[in-house]
Amino acid sequence: MITGSTMKFKFVALAVAGKEAEWLRNLIHEISIWPKPITPISIHCDSAATLAKAYSQMYNGKSRHLGVRHSMIRELIMNGVISIEFVLSHQNLADH
C-alpha cells in the first residue's frame, strides 16, 4: 500500500502487527496447557502521532482505508488483544 506520510505508513504497519497479534492470541487460546487469561500483547511504537490516533475515539474520515484500520485497531485495544506503548526511536529495536 502506498501512503502519503510516515504517520499513515506506521498506522498501516500497526494494523498489520495488530492482526498478527490477534492470530497469535487465538493460537495460544487453542493450546489447552497455556494458562488463562492471556495479557494483552504489547506493541512498541516510536511515533507519538500514530499512538495518539490509535487511542483516539474518533477518526477524522479523510482516508477510507485508514478509517477501516482505525476501527480495527480500536477494537483490538478495547478487547484486550493488544496494548500499544511508546518507545523512543533510538531505543526501538526494530529501527536500527
Rank of each mutant, 00 (worst) to 15 (best):
D46N: 09
I41Q: 06
P35D: 01
I77N: 04
S47T: 06
M58L: 08
A54C: 08
M58F: 05
R74K: 15
I38F: 03
H90C: 07
R25Y: 08
V81D: 01
G67D: 09
P35R: 13
H90V: 06
V68T: 14
I77Y: 01
I43E: 00
A21F: 01
P40E: 07
Q91R: 11
A21Q: 03
V81P: 02
Q91P: 00
W23T: 13
N60E: 13
W34D: 13
K36D: 10
F86D: 07
I84T: 04
I41V: 13
A17V: 04
V68R: 06
N26C: 08
R69C: 10
D46Y: 01
D46Q: 02
K53W: 04
F86R: 08
W34L: 09
I33Y: 10
P37N: 08
M78N: 15
P40R: 05
K36R: 15
S32R: 15
A94M: 07
N92M: 07
M72A: 13
M78W: 04
M78H: 15
E75V: 11
I38A: 05
P37I: 07
M58I: 06
P37G: 09
I41M: 06
H29P: 03
N60G: 05
A48H: 04
R64G: 06
I28L: 11
M78G: 14
I77V: 12
I84H: 01
M72K: 09
R25S: 08
N79R: 15
K53M: 10
P40Q: 05
T39P: 06
S42Q: 11
S71V: 10
A49C: 05
M72V: 06
K19G: 13
K62W: 02
H44I: 07
R64Q: 11
H90E: 05
S83K: 12
I82M: 02
S83V: 11
G18C: 10
G61Q: 04
E22M: 08
K19R: 15
L66V: 09
I38Q: 06
G18W: 00
I43Y: 00
Q57T: 10
S56T: 08
H29D: 14
I84N: 01
K53V: 10
P40Y: 03
I41N: 07
P37S: 08
D46T: 05
R69G: 04
E22C: 05
P40N: 08
S32E: 04
I73C: 02
H29L: 09
K62V: 09
S56N: 15
E85I: 12
A94Q: 07
I82Y: 01
G80I: 02
A54N: 07
E22L: 11
V68S: 13
R25D: 11
W34I: 13
R64S: 12
W23H: 12
E85K: 09
Q57S: 12
S71I: 09
L66Q: 07
L24C: 12
T39S: 14
L66R: 00
H44F: 09
K62D: 13
M78V: 15
T50R: 00
A52V: 12
A54R: 06
A21W: 01
Q57H: 10
A17D: 01
G67Y: 03
L24M: 13
W23P: 03
E20D: 15
S32T: 15
V81H: 02
A94G: 09
G61T: 05
G80E: 08
